[in-house]
Design a protein around this nucleic acid. Structure first.
Lengths: 332, 332
DNA sequence: CTGTTAGCGCCTTCAC
DNA sequence: GTGAAGGCGCTAACAG
């Protein structure tokens, strides 16, 4: 691997000049530039990015911490983050935090010790306080799907309360009078807020919230099955169910069928996230789209802005989900 | 950020000694080690990994190039690669190649210029020759889902011919006499091999392959729909269809239903990959499981072995898919 | 416009 | 066991 030194010798110029043409900085006489470029070509030279980082205190890599690398949700986000950042010549170091506090913290520190220029964090277990404190450090951080007071400008957030609200409302508008709800773990803010939206919609339509029609799931398909089973066996009649994500909705489909009920004739079902497979289900699952692709993109742009002062693209920070009605819901 | 120099001063030892305790190398008197550790603690010191890399010519990061970051397939692989490598203290730089030759090549070079210690490549467009040549360079590379002659020991491969074979065979064993096939793009080796397996199974059961019952799709749901449509309209009777992946199978479900046909009573359907949503479909989709989690794991282990001489875990290189029968197929 | 000179923070012989 | 010294390959003032 050729070094900048060899290039400078071959081109008959100084180290500094080579560095200048590499970084496209300062003015270099066209003739000199050509000489250098030729030399680089001849030696098949590529700058050693490690050395560049050490000298410039800039790694051109940004750390991304997300709960999981698999799943229908995070892949899309990642995909958009990577492509936007890549276009800007930045690299991405990805780690999974598994929604576990210890792991999230550890990953964070690893990323930091790698001299990432900025961090995109999609974390659940780290506290607001911790994050706020972190944001005061020298490394810019951007939060995904979270809104922490005191650092709002670094947060790409989704209005989950609104999401829960419109999901439920869309069923109520179809005339449903009694709805069940399969939620995610209550300790997750997202779950909690969606529930609040659900309740608000009910209230708005003059309906009372019935705790017995609420099931706390795990966001996994299995708990959708189980939840629907329990709800149906409760004996309390309902004509529609709002699920806090699409996986659980898929589970609910399963149980509903097992009970001989028809979707949407006997039971309307709506999910949340609008992941790819929502359209593969039969009947096609209605869902709440969260614009996760856009959220990923905006996180990337924020990084570009705060860590590299690239301020050329518009950045949207607050996202409102919207509802996507498909064949899984019907008038009652 | 404290440096090794400050630690050495605080501990009253030399730079070299601090370096030794950091790297756990050479013998250091326990008392001295303690002093150093205390100093590191006091200063809240973390080694600067960039500087470490530059000096040691080792970045402890390994590059991963996959076709896409999203999708039900790659996420799982990534997930296993990351966790295995992470446990070994290595980081992962991920890029997407989008199955495009120019992009794959560019990504590769970027990864290389980042001084990755090794590369895990899941590529479609780069030629065998290119890869073989690359493997002769100084950076160890491991190929995922590919078998290139001359570097077999660096390939984690899947027997797609066998996959196509068992998919078709499982239907034939149920008594089907006429099967359609919805394939991926013929230029992709994977597609091609699966088709070959399909034909072999047919031959084994004394059936003739009918070109009119073959549709070339794109691996996307839409083409599954379209393919099934065309196949059904061809007028040639068939009782089952083998799809080269689950997305297309989902599309085939759709069209089948639209034609008023019941799955599996009127039409047996089997997919390929056995992604998560296969079980969400109704009826549950039979599929060919490819052990992608294991393949990811083995790729990671190979890297550990070839780039870091860690040779403690068994490595399986050749994988054979197996068939997973569910409710989407039935006796004819 | 271009060259000189210090480092960036750490590892690694080589002596002691 | 431990220290001293010389890089790793490049950037960033500062001169000229």
């Amino acid at each position: 691997m050729a070094t900048i030194y060899e290039v400078s010798k071959l081109a008959g110029v100084s180290l500094a000049t080579v560095s200048r043409v590499i970084n496209n900085i300062d003015k270099v006489k066209p003739a000199t530039r050509q000489k250098v470029l030729r030399a680089m070509e001849d030696l098949n030279y590529t700058p050693n990015s490690i050395a560049q980082s050490l000298a410039s205190r800039r790694s051109n890599s940004i750390g991304v911490l997300i709960p999981e690398l698999h799943g229908p949700f995070f892949g899309i986000m990642l995909s958009h983050i990577e492509s936007e950042l890549r276009d800007a010549g930045k690299h991405v170091m990805i780690m999974a935090g598994h929604s576990d506090e210890a792991k999230e913290k550890e990953s964070l520190e690893l990323l930091l010790s790698r001299n990432c220029d900025a961090l995109i964090l999609h974390v659940y277990s780290l506290t607001d306080e911790y994050l706020l404190n972190l944001s005061k450090g020298s490394v810019p951080i951007v939060l995904l799907n979270r809104l922490v007071a005191g650092m709002e400008d670094r947060c790409i957030s989704l209005d989950n309360e609104h999401g829960g609200y419109i999901a439920t409302k869309s069923l109520l508008e179809l005339g449903h009078k009694s709805l069940a709800y399969i939620s995610g773990p209550h300790w997750k803010v997202d779950s909690f807020k969606r529930i609040r939206g659900h309740k608000r919609a009910l209230a708005e339509f003059g309906l009372e919230f019935d705790q017995r029609l609420m099931f706390e799931g795990t966001f996994e398909e299995e708990s959708g099955k189980l939840g629907m089973e329990q709800l149906l066996q409760s004996g309390i009649p309902f004509t529609g169910v709002v699920c806090a994500n699409d996986e659980m909705a898929a589970g609910a489909y399963n149980t509903t069928r097992k009970h001989g009920l028809k979707i949407p004739d006997d039971m309307s079902i709506i999910g949340y996230d609008d992941v790819a497979f929502a359209r593969y289900l039969y009947p096609k699952l209605s869902s709440v789209t969260c614009h996760i692709d856009q959220m990923g993109l905006m996180a990337a742009r924020s990084v570009l802005k705060y860590a590299y002062e690239k301020d050329n693209a518009a950045i949207q920070k607050a996202f409102k989900p919207s509802v996507m009605l498909r064949a899984s819901v019907d008038k009652v």
